[in-house]
Simulated assay, not measured.
Amino acid sequence: MNKTQRQRLAWRTGFFVLFILAPVFDLFRFDLEENHFYLLTFPWTLGIDAFRNGEISALEMALNMGLRFFLPLALIVGTGVWVAWKWGRLYCGWLCPHFSVVETINHFMRKASGKLSIWDREALPEDQADGTHIHVEKKWWWVTGLLITGFSFVWAVVLLTYLLPPREIYYNLFHGELTRNQALFIGVATFLFIIEFTAARHLFCRFGCVIGLAQSLVWMGNKRALVVGFDRARISQCTECDASCEHACPMRLKPRSIKRKMFTCTQCMQCVQACEKVHTDDPRPPLLHMLQGQCALDVSLRDFGLKPEIPADCFPPIAGTNSDSPSSNGG
């Protein structure tokens, strides 16, 4: 695990903990019983009831709507659009608690079956060019099943605490005193999450997540956004590898493809790390790099059949070659 992946693990872990604890400490949640949000421990109301009761004027109500609804919404959406425009699905790969579950289940399902999904036709190799060694044993299905069930239950309970007082939910849960509706919500949600985490977690990330799709659409609109770039001048060297970069991708994408086919890339950079490992004992630099600006056009403009001029410094030169010569646009 390189520095980038250690940083990503720290961010994902921290955000997953925040996802669980945010409603407990009233950092963010919507209380159905009180019919308003809590933000950073404070009630976050629009004052609709006060306006109906004549306690505040129409002007105060309008200010509340502007400052407590439209302004925060604009800041959140604006920040999300700006981040996605520059870096793509950065939230998905570095923070999203659902994607953390996806990657964890991928890991153990691969140990149990050699596949990242039950729908994959062929198992991945146990030994790869990037040094990965995963011995497939069916006993790992027990661990995979327990993790899927455990994550599903945790997600169901946590989502309920975003809607009802967390102390009430956890007290009732630990004392076996859940109300009928609480038990029904947790039971049904757990069942649905088990199905999703087992059979459709990648499909959800690709097509079912509104936040993810919005990031992808914004990212696709910026031809110079951060993207995985492939040094096409050395395309022949790929025959020396076993597609370790593809095997490392948790979304099961092909990192050497054009941008359109990388629509759901989460910027986790695991494919780049795999390529780096393949070249650990190779004097030649890796073929995959994260690119931005003019360097990213080789990936994005090829969607339209174009072959743009790529600056010579987009990829590190091979030792002993002329670093001033531009990379080839063939391939």
Rank of each mutant, 00 (worst) to 15 (best):
residue 162 Y to L: 00
residue 150 G to M: 02
residue 136 V to T: 13
residue 95 L to C: 07
residue 65 M to G: 10
residue 120 D to W: 00
residue 58 A to D: 09
residue 133 H to S: 03
residue 116 L to M: 15
residue 120 D to N: 08
residue 132 T to E: 01
residue 107 H to I: 01
residue 79 T to F: 14
residue 70 F to A: 12
residue 80 G to F: 11
residue 114 G to V: 01
residue 137 E to A: 14
residue 151 F to T: 06
residue 75 L to F: 12
residue 63 L to C: 05
residue 93 G to I: 07
residue 140 W to N: 00
residue 44 W to D: 06
residue 119 W to I: 09
residue 64 N to G: 08
residue 56 I to P: 07
residue 52 R to S: 14
residue 41 T to H: 09
residue 77 V to M: 11
residue 77 V to G: 03
residue 97 P to E: 07
residue 76 I to V: 15
residue 161 T to P: 02
residue 111 K to L: 11
residue 120 D to L: 08
residue 132 T to H: 00
residue 49 D to G: 02
residue 113 S to I: 02
residue 115 K to Y: 05
residue 39 L to R: 00
residue 99 F to N: 13
residue 83 V to D: 06
residue 42 F to Q: 12
residue 61 M to Q: 09
residue 87 W to P: 02
residue 76 I to D: 09
residue 145 G to Q: 08
residue 59 L to H: 03
residue 101 V to I: 15
residue 135 H to M: 03
residue 142 W to S: 06
residue 111 K to I: 02
residue 71 L to N: 09
residue 89 R to K: 15
residue 121 R to M: 12
residue 89 R to L: 04
residue 118 I to E: 11
residue 39 L to F: 15
residue 126 E to T: 12
residue 99 F to P: 09
residue 152 S to A: 14
residue 74 A to V: 11
residue 163 L to R: 10
residue 104 T to H: 03
residue 55 E to W: 08
residue 89 R to E: 04
residue 38 Y to H: 03
residue 52 R to Y: 13
residue 131 G to T: 00
residue 46 L to W: 03
residue 74 A to S: 15
residue 92 C to V: 09
residue 123 A to T: 10
residue 79 T to E: 04
residue 62 A to V: 03
residue 122 E to L: 14
residue 95 L to I: 07
residue 77 V to C: 09
residue 101 V to P: 04
residue 162 Y to V: 07
residue 100 S to D: 02
residue 49 D to L: 12
residue 114 G to T: 00
residue 146 L to F: 15
residue 36 H to P: 04
residue 98 H to K: 12
residue 63 L to V: 14
residue 38 Y to N: 04
residue 129 A to C: 09
residue 149 T to K: 11
residue 113 S to F: 05
residue 138 K to V: 02
residue 81 V to R: 04
residue 63 L to E: 13
residue 40 L to C: 01
residue 41 T to K: 13
residue 65 M to C: 12
residue 60 E to K: 05
residue 95 L to G: 08
residue 108 F to T: 13
residue 62 A to K: 03
residue 142 W to T: 13
residue 47 G to H: 09
residue 84 A to W: 00
residue 68 R to N: 08
residue 155 W to A: 11
residue 46 L to E: 04
residue 158 V to W: 04
residue 157 V to P: 01
residue 63 L to P: 03
residue 139 K to F: 01
residue 53 N to A: 14
residue 141 W to P: 00
residue 64 N to M: 11
residue 67 L to K: 00
residue 102 V to R: 10
residue 127 D to S: 04
residue 92 C to K: 07
residue 152 S to H: 02
residue 49 D to I: 14
residue 160 L to E: 08
residue 125 P to K: 10
residue 41 T to P: 09
residue 72 P to K: 09
residue 113 S to K: 10
residue 81 V to D: 00
residue 97 P to T: 06
residue 156 A to R: 05
residue 120 D to R: 14
residue 118 I to S: 12
residue 58 A to M: 12
residue 151 F to K: 01
residue 105 I to A: 01
residue 66 G to E: 08
residue 94 W to D: 07
residue 37 F to A: 12
residue 87 W to I: 10
residue 70 F to V: 10
residue 129 A to S: 13
residue 42 F to L: 09
residue 58 A to P: 03
residue 138 K to W: 04
residue 85 W to F: 11
residue 132 T to A: 00
residue 43 P to W: 06
residue 85 W to K: 05
